[in-house]
Design a protein around this nucleic acid. Sequence first.
RNA 1: GGGUCUGUAGCUCAGUUGGUUAGAGCACCGCCUUGAUAAGGCGGGGGUCACAGGUUCGAGCCCUGUCAGACCCA
Length: 917
Amino acid sequence: MSKKNAYKDTLNLPKTDFPMRANLVEREPKRLASWDEENLYHKVQAKRKADGCPKFVLHDGPPFANGDVHMGTALNKLLKDFILKSRSMSGFETPYIPGWDCHGLPIEFKVVKEAKGLEPAEIRRRSEAFAREYIDIQRKSFKRLGVLGDWENPYLTLDPKYEADIIRVFATFVERGMVYQSKKPVSWSYGAQTALAEAEVDYEDKTSPAVFVRFPLLNDTFGADTSMVIWTTTPWTLPANLAIAVHERFDYVVDEFAHEDGRTLRLVITKDLIEAFGEKTGFRPVGGPHAQTVKGQAFEGMEAQHPFLDRQSKLITAPFVTAETGTGAVHIAPGHGQDDYVAGLQHGLEILSPVDDDGLYTDEVGVPELVGTHVFKANGRIIEILEEKGALLGQHPYEHKYPFCWRSKTPIIFRAVEQFFIRIDDIRNKALEEIKKTTWLPSWGQNRIAGTVEARPDWCISRQRTWGVPLPVFRTPDGGWIIDAEIARKVAEITETEGTNAWFELSDAEWAKRLDLPEGTKKGRDTLDVWIDSGSSHVAVMDRHPELHRPADVYIEATDQHRGWFQSSLMVSVATHDAAPYKTVITHGFVVDTSGKKLAKSGTGGKPMTAIHFYDKYGADNVRLWAASVDYNSEVPFSEELFEQVVDAYRRIRNTLRILLGNLHGFDPSKDTVPFEDLTLIDQWILTRLHQVTTNCRQAFDAYEFRKVYNELNQFCAVDLSSLYIDITKDRLYCDGLDSTRRKASQTAIATIMDTLCRLLAPIISFTADEAWEALGKPDSVHMERFPEADDIPASDRAVSQVQGLLEARHVIQKAIEDARQAKTIARNDEAVVTLTAPKDHVLHQLADDAPALTEFFIVSAIQLEEGEVLGAKVTASEAEKCARCWRYVDTVGASSAHPELCHRCVSALPEGFSLS
RNA sequence: GGGUCUGUAGCUCAGUUGGUUAGAGCACCGCCUUGAUAAGGCGGGGGUCACAGGUUCGAGCCCUGUCAGACCCA
């Protein structure tokens, strides 16, 4: 060892096994294994229960058992984990039963695509296998991310017991008289051959062939050969036209319209759209002597001739007619549209829908050559027919938002089919009342779900699918329907023990026999909407698990669930329990790419967006810290570059923990703790800051504002600890003697800081906090602990105001030192001799007597305080010798003959019997 | 077209009930340190707080309007 390092071994340098390099990717799985081994989740629950803690129930919204966990799914589960862990540490028992949504189109779709022509029971077996495979994949990811829960006993909507409860929920709806069967236009996907729920519909841009079509009026009130003109973007629905709707208050012009090519026709167009009509078709009003303007009401009760069928079209008035596009006269096909259907009911029109499951025309279409043609391929032929009949006045491509099937990506057609419905009006008002009683975070969520519930039509609950819970209804030999609660409950009993595959495997005759139904009765072919499945989870899970309770304290999912799970759960709960299933509903935004587009599961531009990519590369705690750092109230922009910013923050926090741990080496709290009154100013100050940080973090945890926790702790580590407190106290920690009270004072503060930081960080970076906790020598996991109480951390207002004054001066001094450094007068802070001036009433003067405190705080050689007008600092180089041990420039160096290179403090800090030789 | 939300440094965000010169982290530039070292410290550049009005002694914050983006609905 060279001479200049001769005293190095006498320093108390930080010492810890807590490594700087986290190596989370290897370290975390080991910790996870030990959590598993000690059954940490159950251990924590048991402890809270033993302590008599009240329960806090977060009811898990089941992700779909399909695909890898991507960053959006990860965010959702991590937010849940933050809530549960923080509530647990606040003194609640927090049982968590994770779940999966298993039935439904996406899985069946994949199974059916892989192998065509399978029997229903085989489709179901393969679908179940598929779901279970992804449940395992997802469970692995969620566990790897450090989410604590009862992973060995999750709820699955394919569990026969769960399925039986779904059927019982259906029975309740039947009992309340809310279920009915009807032919009704529904959003029909010919690609997936099923009716779709609204939530299963995506809107995309589509170009449709828009046509203007003439319907001759069979009434010569406005002159012979007068025609109504309609505009439609779906020419294929014209064979099902049964009426034309006008607005009763709009003005309609009846006039001769002349075309550039010489044709002249007498037409009816609403006043506001005449110009647009002229531009699109070339027909413009001539303004002749027979022109007149009438209100729409005038047409009510008239009839018009269908352009190519031997049928009349009724003229009606309807409030949904607009004067924005078209002609002010709307083509009505009650079998092909919601508005049309309602208008049809009011005017006694037939629900005509001559289209089959594949989207092909049936015999009913009335045009023999079109039978068997796909409706979207028929548009061209229909336009030709219109042209042949002289009914076509114009056509143009029209781009608009059009509904598409969410899975098969094919455009939706509205088509009337026999379906089963739940009558929403029976529970709508109660549901709205319950919405008001619920807390919605963010608060605008209340408007969103209330709006949805107010406007939603009856709930179409039947699906023409195989992978789902059977809709337990029967058809009598004479073609009637048996919709009966008692029978449904019997079906529930049977499937609970035999599985719902029994519904598909047992014959009609066997079912009739088992249920005492007349011979020849046939079971229904439909399955239930999957929103009934997940919407029944509070019945099948919350009511069934003794450790849970109703209502749940919190539901938290992405914003799309206002229309999905939050709503279906509410409807089921109001019907079965006459109350909402939740007290508070929180929503979070989607994870989107940096341009604001929703992330596809596969990622954007080939970049991986699965959670596995991130925890395998950076570790789960970095993913967790990321999730805590984002503003989940709105969309969450995401890219790997943004993610890496959080990785930097993690490193800083980890390093801070490491140096704190290193400086606690040899500290025995039971013997070495210094009372608060005896701590130095800076120690009192950092503990006061810790007190504030604890208060703020606990409030933020309670309010589910994890980003605030992140900001608070990040700031505390980076600014208060790293650049101030640790930097300042390094000298005494390293260079003071082992028994120095000042050193122990800092260690006292650091011990409290470490203890508090670990607990506050535990819900967020659960692995690292536990690792640090272990490094502190604590026997149990940090997750068994409670949060610190802010009031248990001593605080001093005086320390805050004095340090605030010191910080002001520090800024001024550092600037002066920087100038000196640039001028090469000095190289290091501690070479500086500072003359500081401050106004007479400045708080600095309270500290004038304590020179060592000042030089320590500013990390300078010497400081002289004078009165002056404003804060100011002058810097000169110290003329003192540099202590070989602590590197300070102090005038006591050389005073000792035994150690002429050392300052007074260092001489006395040397271990007993130390000698240079 | 209707409703909701968002708009503060190059990027991600803080900014308490309106109150001095709007703050952090990352990135960038310069310097110091090598006893937190695949670390740490100091300094710097960079902001018309989307825009325009209004209330007020005083507005990033409150009010009105405009623009842009997002989401839901039509």
